[in-house]
Computed example of a mutant assay.
Amino acid sequence: MTRFGYTLMTEQSGPKELVHYAVEAERRGFDFEVSSDHFFPWLKEMGHSPYAWSVLGAVAHATERVELMTYVTCPTMRYHPAVVAQKAATLGLLSDGRFLLGLGAGENLNEHVAGHRWPAVGERHDMLEEALVIIRDLLDGHDLTFEGDHFRVDSARLWDLPESRVEIGVAVSGPQSVSRFAPLADHLVATQPQRKTLERWAAARSDAGLTASRAIGQIPICWDTDADAAVQRAHRLFRWFGGGWHVNADLPTTRAFADATQFVRPEDVAGSIPCGPDLDAIVEAVSAFWEAGFTDVALVQVGDEKQQEFLDRAAEPLLEKLRDAAPAGEPV
């Protein structure tokens, strides 16, 4: 059965509001909650970017049932991978085993603040692979000394570990990243509902003698009782979304995203994000993920100003429609 999640969008809400929404989303019946991990919002109109790990620590204590996840953390520039492992282990304990560590190769927008040059994609994948080795070893409880091409670890050990090791999901986008990271991660993370990506992932894991894994996707929606207002809000806050990972990973600032999207029209955004009160249209958009084989799909409701109304009025009937429409068995 497909699981449905709620996104704690740190780029559009403050920390206290995010904790409140997390509690409300659990109460409305979402299965899991994911948090972005940014230093910048995508556009200045979004207006926020609190520290995701502090927010998740508070959410872990404010909720009881939902699984929590970073979607996703880059463990290579702003954070050293050993520190990411420590943060993940601590959240595993605070959440009583409800935390899943989502990792990715990052975006220039968030990582340039550490003052390092932004590497080309191949080097970023080299760095992520080393980081994964370090994080896995530490989460497995090993004493670790490591010297690679990008990272060094000197006599590290995590002293507070949950009973069950924190599992790791890795964001992938193409054949090279799939074949490289499928043997190192526990689960796949992707934002495009492409069946071929999942098939390649499953084949790479099978070749490595590993079991099947979850595929965790994410989709923006812009629910509103007023369809025109929804389109305008989606355009104001989410017009960057259509650029795709290969563009979005390299732009360095909110100004760059504003310049890159200056000719995107509201109707362009409405063509890729379901906008308005029609819950069936949202279900149809989400269905592309379970049809591609995704096991989990997190929804992003666009706009802080409509989060509470979405949770109060739309979340429960939408979840009911999604669960009625999703296949009863495991996605393929």
Rank of each mutant, 00 (worst) to 15 (best):
H116T: 13
V264W: 07
V286K: 07
L251Y: 13
P220G: 02
T7P: 00
F30I: 10
Q262Y: 11
V113R: 05
R117H: 13
S13D: 11
R205T: 00
V264Y: 01
K16G: 12
P252W: 11
P266K: 01
Q176V: 14
D304N: 15
A204Y: 01
Q218L: 13
I219E: 11
I168F: 00
E130W: 01
P193Y: 02
F263Q: 15
D296K: 04
A204D: 02
T225G: 14
T63Q: 06
R313Q: 14
A52F: 03
D140Y: 03
W240H: 13
L94F: 11
I219S: 10
T145Q: 09
V72T: 13
A105I: 12
G115F: 01
P81Q: 11
T90L: 08
P119L: 03
A227E: 15
R239Q: 09
F32P: 04
G303A: 04
S272P: 00
P15A: 11
R27Q: 15
G303S: 03
P41Q: 03
E291Q: 13
T73M: 11
D224Q: 03
D324N: 14
L109Y: 10
E130P: 00
R180G: 08
G242Y: 04
A190L: 10
M69D: 01
R205Q: 00
A204S: 13
D160S: 14
P317V: 05
D296M: 05
V55F: 03
V166H: 01
L144V: 15
G271Y: 07
W159L: 15
L311Q: 08
A315W: 02
D140P: 02
R65G: 05
Q12R: 06
L18S: 09
G329F: 05
D226S: 06
V153A: 12
M127R: 15
E33N: 07
L299E: 04
L188I: 06
A298W: 04
L318R: 08
W290C: 09
R180N: 09
L210Y: 00
N110Y: 06
L68F: 05
A227R: 14
H246Q: 15
H38P: 10
V247F: 13
F40N: 15
E284M: 05
I216E: 02
Y71R: 07
A314G: 07
V59Y: 00
R28N: 03
A204R: 02
W159P: 00
G29Q: 03
P183H: 05
L93K: 06
